[in-house]
Write a protein that binds this DNA or RNA. Structure first.
Length: 864
RNA sequence: GGGCGCGUAGCUCAGUGGGAGAGCGCUCGCUUCACACGCGAGAGGUCGCAGGUUCGAAACCCGCCGCGCCCACCA
């Protein structure tokens, strides 16, 4: 039982049972009471072993929260509330992910500005009231300021929603991924990796989005089905005229080789020879490689600079030359035909043909070259329509290309084995989610590219010297001192230089890029725990206990967070990962805006009530995709109403409880309750909140339908031992139910708790089976349990008789004859008097164990 | 092509070696002194298909079919 704390109750805690309890208004009332009482405040003075720390997912603020957020954030809150009631100090901060492209795009449109890192910072800059036609160029620090200004509005709306949903976050601890501290920690970690040569810079083929004109990472790609066409194209050889098939004929000028499989006899004759490309007459070798698939197309494949990642593999392994034709803007660049690397059997023809393509976009160039190939007779047959999966940047609108550029990378390939081992150290909930992590690590094809050619993000804290000849010395980066962080090299000046030297011979330039958003998000445990800024706090919360997140970002957020912690701390960032599923609409598709079926979360909370929505969320098992189901919310609301009414029934006019529960039915009830406490606790310990809810809820309904009915007749019994035993069983069980349900239905449970207890239920002790030990000691548990079973069964038969006779439930009973096994009849004898059937009850012993039969005679006459 | 998950009542799902279950929906009944945001009762299923293991399989094994997600060297 909760200890009565003297005078701890504020004005919000009343002590009266209302006449007509209602759910209306509970959210506002208790959310503000929790805030003013500091119920969820984190006490950092607690020893580490009593701290439970959560690495909350920071939602992207430039967008809106949707039903899926409500779903998964509720799961985390269930665990947080359970651990808090178990006596843990719960470190449960909230972060805002305001760093990245979505915010950048919103700010551009909202204020009518564009970021130009070459512009100087203007401390007095104020955007016009109305966004101008032509965007105003502003410095990166000014742009970041505008981002922060806009995201603050979003963050307030998000916080309001989370409070209404009842997340037990300590709102005194929030962070933003673009905030000063996040930039400081992110830049410091980067500099550490740079010092250890784990971060490095290199000019290499990189995945490239031509619209955003930035490098992107493997983890940010997704496949989309796109219609394409397969073209059969003839190359020119001495005698042989080999055919290839390609979906990307516009890359023929970028062709550097043809490949066949080493065992493919069909092409053995030309392997080792040279052939010339159609239209351009460039000589390319015919080589072999194991990766070529014989049964695709003609068995000959064209290698270009670069059509896909396989081209990069072949280019690397076969030491092929490069012939880049694609520019960073997705258009074909001018080519100096005749110069080294661009030789041709017929320079004029090559120039003429390529002149038709230069400056065009990929799609335009493809259409034109098909016409040219048809005219020259090198296109064999008609192009065949094909469906093909094409890689897109997940936010992009055109396929990613591969472009050679200078980028920053973090070494991951050499750590793959260690990362797999980290994944096995981590406790996954559910366990099978680990396979997704291992699949991803095993499938990595290159180091993690972390630089982006964008503006709103954490800048690389790097400058480069410019030599006397004006050449940038990329190999000799200048780094800031730690205490200078965070720096923006586009406006800050490195030690020993003046601003006037920026971009001049003998001067310096800043690295123009920003980090991938995951390069910062991968440090959320360090950011939330304020590593290096508040090391005492960091030591208290890191490594954290829990990472909650959805399964779609295992390859990004979960993976990169493990990587960074492994590299910087040589340990896991957290000991448990709880993976939530997605919300599916009734068609079993992931709910998304494009489907037009997104319901706004605030509307849901207003319509059904927060407890009801939480109940629905809690019914989604860890990891399982769950259907959006308003019906389930109505059931949750029904449960909340039941909690109100059952609590009212137990608490109103309660006779004086005895010091101890003494009667068999009451003792049996408490014994079953102890089992439920054990089951719910075990489930919560295993992060299976759904099972904890199911067990508790199932028994609570049974309790209302059966035990409370049995108690009705007995609680005002003239014998104070009977009434005292019932009263004690009722108050003990009510206290337990209110606490077991508190994580799921925090508002209604706080309300009913306040009617008779001091302090918040959310800081009360989680129920323990041993609270009931004293009342359960002695006696014959089995016999008493059987008595309760049989009594409930008889009650059921009596109701059935009334229902079959279409009589009201208050119809009097003349006589009940129960026939059952000797064992069960014996048990019922203990409780027969407590059934209060208002009529005679006869017990007969039957022959077999399944002899249970009840004959009910209803009294004739009026029902009232 | 590979991996993971799923397939049980009209719907959403629980059930992992021995009685086929819950809630909703449906049908019928009832103002019952906590609750009409209620209460009581009832109907409803060849547990995806086909083999195997076992005295016994919804559950364990093998194969297949279907759905979803992730991954892949998708020319």
């Amino acid at each position: 039982m909760s200890e009565k704390e003297d005078a701890a109750a504020g004005p919000a805690w009343s002590t009266r049972v209302p006449e007509r309890p209602t759910l209306d208004g509970l959210e506002e009332r208790w959310a503000s009471a929790w805030e003013s009482e500091g119920v969820y405040r984190f006490d950092r003075s607690a020893p580490r072993e009593r701290i439970y720390s959560i690495d909350t997912p920071p939602p992207t603020v430039s967008g809106s929260l949707h039903v899926g957020h409500v779903f998964s954030f509720t799961h985390t809150d269930l665990v947080a509330r359970y651990r808090r009631m178990r006596g843990m100090e719960v470190f449960y901060p909230m972060g805002w992910d305001d760093n990245g492209l979505p915010t950048e795009r919103r700010v551009q449109n909202h204020f009518g500005v564009r970021c130009d890192p070459t512009v100087a910072y203007d401390a007095a800059f104020e955007p016009p009231a109305e966004p101008p036609e032509e965007p105003i160029a502003v410095s990166r620090p000014n742009f970041v300021e505008l981002c922060l200004r806009l995201t603050q509005t979003d963050e307030r709306a998000f916080e309001e929603l989370w409070r209404r949903l009842g997340l037990s976050v300590d709102w005194g601890m929030t962070y933003a991924t673009i905030g000063d501290d996040a930039r400081r920690i992110s830049q410091r970690s980067f500099l550490g990796l740079l010092g250890r040569a784990i971060a490095y810079q290199v000019e290499a083929p990189t995945l490239w989005d031509v619209d955003f004109q930035t490098a992107v990472a493997q983890a940010e790609l997704e496949d989309r089905e796109r219609p394409g066409a397969m073209h059969r194209v003839r190359f020119h050889g001495e005698g042989a005229q080999p055919l290839i098939e390609t979906t990307r004929p516009e890359l023929i000028p970028a062709c550097v080789a043809l490949l066949a499989h080493p065992d493919d006899a069909r092409h053995a004759a030309i392997v080792g020879s040279e052939v010339r490309t159609p239209l351009f007459g460039t000589a390319v070798p015919v080589l072999t490689h194991e990766l070529v698939e014989r049964d695709k197309g003609t068995g000959l494949v064209m290698v270009c600079t670069f059509g896909d990642l396989t081209d990069v593999t072949w280019w690397r392994e076969l030491s092929l030359p490069v012939r880049p034709v694609l520019g960073v803007d997705g258009r074909l660049v001018p080519i100096p035909w005749g110069e080294p690397g661009w030789e041709s059997a017929d320079i004029d023809a090559a120039r003429a043909a390529y002149g038709e393509l230069a400056g065009r976009t990929i799609n335009q160039a493809r259409r034109r070259i098909v016409e040219l190939l048809a005219e020259s007779g090198d296109l064999i047959g008609e192009p065949q329509e094909v469906k093909r999966a094409v890689k897109f940047y997940e936010r992009g609108e055109r396929p990613v290309e591969i472009v050679t550029s200078r980028q920053w990378f973090i070494r991951t390939m050499e750590h793959r084995d260690a990362l797999i081992a980290r994944g096995r150290e981590l406790k996954w909930h559910p366990a099978y989610m680990r396979a997704r992590f291992e699949d991803w690590v095993n499938g990595l094809t290159g180091d993690w590219c972390i630089s982006r050619q964008r503006f709103f993000g954490v800048p690389f804290p790097i400058w480069y010297p410019v030599d006397a000849g004006g050449v940038v010395q990329y190999d000799a980066p200048i780094t800031p001192r730690e205490e200078q962080l965070p720096v923006d090299p586009s406006t800050d000046v490195p030690d020993g230089f003046q601003e006037s030297q920026r971009g001049t011979p003998g001067g310096f330039i800043g690295d123009p890029d920003v980090m991938d958003t995951w390069a910062t998000s991968s440090l959320t445990p360090q950011i939330a725990g304020r590593e290096w800024i508040d090391d005492e706090l960091f030591r208290a919360v890191f490594p954290m206990d829990l990472r909650p997140q959805a399964h779609d970002i295992i390859r990004t957020w979960l993976f990169t967070t493990i990587l960074r912690s492994h590299l910087d701390h040589d340990e896991l960032p957290w000991s448990n990962a709880a993976i939530s599923g997605w919300i599916l609409d009734p068609d079993r598709k992931k709910m998304s805006k494009s489907k037009g079926n997104v319901v706004t979360p605030m509307h849901l909370l207003e319509e059904h009530g927060s407890d009801a929505v939480r109940y629905w969320a809690a019914s989604g098992r860890p990891g399982a995709d769950t259907a959006f189901d308003p019906q389930q919310m109505r059931i949750g609301r029904r449960l909340a109403v039941k909690v109100l009414n059952a609590s009212k029934f137990v608490l109103q006019d309660s006779p004086t409880p005895a010091a101890r529960v003494s009667h068999p039915l009451d003792r049996a009830l408490l014994a079953r309750l102890a089992d439920v406490i054990r089951a719910a606790s075990e489930s919560f310990d295993a992060y299976d909140y759904t099972r904890a809810l199911e067990r508790t809820e199932e028994f609570f309904w049974w309790y209302c339908d059966n035990y409370l009915e049995l108690a009705k007749g007995r609680r005002y019994d003239s014998d104070p031992e009977v009434s005292g035993s019932v009263a004690r069983a009722l108050t003990l069980s009510l206290s337990v139910f209110q606490r077991l349900l508190a994580p799921f239905l925090p508002f209604v449970c706080e309300e009913v708790w306040s009617w008779w207890q001091q302090g918040s239920v959310h800081r009360a002790a989680w129920p323990q089976a041993r609270e009931l030990e004293r009342d359960l000691s002695g006696g014959d548990g089995e016999l008493e349990a059987r008595a309760l079973d049989v009594a409930a069964a008889v009650l059921h038969e009596v109701r059935k008789a009334k229902s079959d006779a279409r009589r009201p439930m208050r119809a009097p009973v003349a006589r009940v004859v129960v026939r059952d096994s000797a064992e069960r009849v014996g048990a019922l004898e203990l409780a027969a008097g407590d059934l209060r059937l208002a009529g005679a009850i006869e017990l007969l012993e039957g022959e077999a164990a399944d002899a249970f039969a009840v004959a009910v005679e209803l009294a004739d006459g009026a029902d009232d």
